[in-house]
Structures are given as C-alpha cells and as structure tokens.
C-alpha cells in the first residue's frame, strides 16, 4: 500500500508546475510527502479542509481550497478520509 501511495505521489509531482505534494489522513497525520511540501503543515491543511466542508454541509463532495500568491499556489482537496495537498509554481 505504501508503494502505491509513493508511486501516486511521484506521478503527481511529475506533472507540469507541481513542486510539492502531501497526503494526510483525517486526523492530520502525514501519510506521505514529496518536494517542497512540509509534513508539519499536514495538520493545518486537514483542519482547513474540515472547516471548508462546514461551508456547505449538504455537499456530497469536498470543495477544492486554493491558496494563491505571486510565487505559487497551494491546492487542497479531501476525498473520504484522505486529504491531498499540491504545491504549484506558475509555469510561463
């Protein structure tokens, strides 16, 4: 199972513009991290995702949270008990 997760994180990291990727469980425990993402942020992103789900309690799927700045974006999406974080840099 760990090999599958490692492979999926590697595949995600190989997409254009992606510089970091992190996967966490619903308790904020970091399951895997690659690139510029830091395992210390896993608890914060899971809490962020849980707060976002409260904005539309009837929604069947969790929203995508996007933190944007000039130097890059952080995308957060939860699915079932897992949260995936993608760090992207602008590609020109």
């Amino acid at each position: 199972m760990e090999n599958n997760l490692e492979r999926l994180l590697d595949e995600t990291l190989n997409n254009p513009g992606v510089v970091g990727v992190l996967c966490a469980d619903k308790q904020g425990l970091c399951l895997g991290v690659k690139g510029t993402a830091t395992p210390e942020s896993s608890g914060i992103v899971v809490a962020l995702s849980q707060q976002a789900a409260l904005l539309k309690p009837a929604a069947s799927t969790a929203p995508v949270i996007c933190l944007e700045s000039d130097k890059g974006n952080v995308l957060v999406k939860s699915h079932e008990d897992t949260t995936l974080v993608i760090h992207k840099m602008p590609v020109y």
Binding site: A47, L55, V64, I65, E68, S69, H87
Partner: peptide, 26 residues
C-alpha cells in the same frame, strides 16, 4: 480558515503567505 491558511507557507524559501483564499464548490 484565514487564520489556518496564514500559517501555511506557500514558498518554502520565503515567509510568504497567501494573497487570495478560494474555496471552490461545484
């Protein structure tokens, strides 16, 4: 969410935080 998001570093080299927070539903 804004308080939590301000603790996430977007760029690992600089103490920079987000300029815009979007929560995108369907």
């Amino acid at each position: 969410m804004v308080r939590l998001a301000s603790r996430i570093k977007i760029n690992p080299d600089k103490p920079e935080t987000f300029k815009r927070l979007s929560v995108v539903f369907d």
